[in-house]
Simulated scan of single mutants.
Amino acid sequence: MSIVFLALGTTRARAVCASARFLVERGVQVDLITVEEKPWRAEGLDERVRVLPLRTRADRMLANKLAAKFYKLFRPYVMWRAARRQALRLVDWNAVEQAVISDSHAIPIGWHLARRHPKLTVAFELDRTPYLGSDPASVPAGSDSAPLVTGTVAD
């Protein structure tokens, strides 16, 4: 069993790090799909979390303002292609129980994942309920949430 976090930036780094720590302490495999590993480790991401970085040539090649404006429009598609070709191939999707969209930039990747894997739960927050065991006091109030998507997604 495993959980995949999708976070292209570090906007919600503390929450992601806390959820990842909660999971790895319970023996759950955790993957983080992001643009760069170093800022996450600096935020305190547990060393047991596997980071799957996305590499795009466009992120490194942007030099002028005009190119940057056009790239902003296409970045969600570019990031999905990078994820599909790189990080997503390294994940055993049969073992993943939930994909957690951790920032707004990761929503397109989550949407594509939900379409590709109709039985996969894709959500904005980690549902900790399956990992509680007999100790519900170990979860802060309000940390559980309903899934964003389960089942098929309409076009």
Rank of each mutant, 00 (worst) to 15 (best):
153 V>S: 05
49 V>S: 08
91 V>A: 10
36 E>V: 13
14 R>T: 10
32 L>Y: 01
111 W>M: 14
61 M>T: 11
150 T>R: 12
51 V>F: 07
20 A>Y: 00
114 A>N: 01
63 A>C: 09
22 F>D: 08
75 R>G: 03
21 R>K: 13
81 R>Q: 13
4 V>T: 11
84 R>N: 14
64 N>S: 12
36 E>G: 06
140 P>Y: 02
154 A>E: 14
124 F>P: 00
135 D>Y: 09
22 F>P: 02
42 A>M: 12
142 G>I: 10
144 D>M: 08
67 A>N: 12
89 R>K: 15
43 E>I: 02
108 P>F: 04
46 D>F: 03
132 L>F: 07
94 N>H: 15
109 I>C: 06
107 I>W: 05
58 A>E: 12
98 Q>G: 01
135 D>V: 09
21 R>L: 12
123 A>P: 08
142 G>E: 04
67 A>D: 14
5 F>M: 04
78 V>M: 09
146 A>N: 10
17 C>T: 06
9 G>P: 03
155 D>E: 15
77 Y>N: 11
53 P>V: 06
79 M>Y: 07
69 K>E: 13
68 A>I: 07
14 R>N: 11
132 L>A: 10
115 R>W: 06
63 A>G: 11
125 E>Q: 14
115 R>N: 07
138 S>M: 10
54 L>M: 05
19 S>P: 04
42 A>N: 13
53 P>W: 07
138 S>D: 09
19 S>D: 15
89 R>G: 13
6 L>H: 02
96 V>P: 03
149 V>C: 10
75 R>L: 11
43 E>W: 11
61 M>G: 10
100 V>L: 07
19 S>V: 02
65 K>G: 08
86 Q>E: 14
25 E>S: 11
136 P>D: 06
6 L>M: 08
149 V>L: 11
140 P>A: 09
16 V>N: 01
120 L>K: 03
46 D>H: 12
72 K>N: 11
150 T>A: 06
121 T>R: 15
18 A>T: 12
34 T>K: 00
71 Y>C: 05
122 V>E: 00
1 M>A: 14
144 D>C: 10
122 V>Q: 00
110 G>I: 03
25 E>I: 11
101 I>D: 01
47 E>W: 08
36 E>A: 14
46 D>I: 05
40 W>C: 07
107 I>N: 02
79 M>C: 02
45 L>C: 06
34 T>D: 02
32 L>D: 00
41 R>F: 06
97 E>P: 01
114 A>S: 15
128 R>N: 04
152 T>A: 12
79 M>P: 03
52 L>Y: 01
145 S>V: 04
56 T>I: 08
82 A>R: 04
86 Q>C: 11
13 A>S: 15
96 V>G: 06
120 L>C: 07
35 V>M: 14
125 E>V: 09
27 G>W: 07
12 R>N: 15
105 H>Y: 13
118 P>I: 07
31 D>V: 01
103 D>C: 10
59 D>I: 09
83 A>K: 00
72 K>W: 10
114 A>V: 06
57 R>T: 10
133 G>W: 06
146 A>T: 09
65 K>P: 09
6 L>N: 00
116 R>K: 14
126 L>P: 02
65 K>D: 13
95 A>N: 09
137 A>L: 10
133 G>K: 05
